[in-house]
Amino acid sequence: MSESEKAARLSVFKTYKLFVGGKFPRSESGRVYEVTDSKGRWLANAPQSSRKDARDAVVAARKAFAGWSGATAYNRGQILYRVAEMLEGRRDQFVREVGDAEGLSKSKAGAVVDAAIDRWVWYAGWTDKIAQIVGGANPVAGPYFNLSSPEPTGVVAILAPQESSFLGLVSVVAPVIATGNTAVVVTSEASPLPALSLGEVLATSDLPGGVVNLLSGRTAEIATPLAAHQDVNAIDLAGAEEVLAKELEIAAADNLKRVRRPQPVDWAADPGTERLTSFLETKTVWHPAGGSGSSGAAY
């Protein structure tokens, strides 16, 4: 074997797949589409999801909801933190993918990936605090114990940001699952690869299958059935342009999905709690407390 033959070792391409129900299927449609870097060079073929893929993802997300929303907040925090750990270990891969996807230099892409890892850490810490921030006892005028607690809305469809293919994605997905929702995520249409790789990280972070489902493809094609799906409880339109957003919001009204409209966001900025609270329901429980009792004293 000559030296030149050694140097010309052909690299192994990665087949990018969807992430649904904790598994890595191809699109049931058998379709793929070409993903290029910012200069138009071929990077990979990504699965082009169909409405049936969207349907399967909703089924997986619904199936995962009871277990994930019922897990302790501490446990959810541990798992989100585990995602950060796993990402840190595969940092180089994500720096390369984000750089390719968004046309960033290695150092800028590095900063984006670091910010995304830190975002997982931020939300990991929120899981067991948000209830104390937004819930609490209400001093009703009567002999009743009255407590309001936040609960996850359910299955949330997320249209991930189109431009910020990784930090933006993490910024919309992490808060949704931190509070116990499960998600069906439509990745950035043009730059789906960092998102699909994130699926591999999630699969190895103890995150139960179905909590996050990642679908690449044409945003409008996948989002339309999701917005109309009667078993989806909410939709984040972050990655929808104006006309599509309006159409989807109209479709979402059919089962009164909670809708988060698209708005300009600086993904690098402090995220605050807005996205955590967007997909929470407040449940208020009443119970009698005491009564004056037969001896006239409270007991």
């Binding site: 009564g291 009792g293 037969s294 001896s295 007991y299």
Partner: peptide, 11 residues
């Protein structure tokens, strides 16, 4: 003497 039985369950 319900006032001494203290609870309605007792009554």
């Amino acid at each position: 003497e319900t006032g001494e039985l203290s609870t309605y369950d007792n009554i």
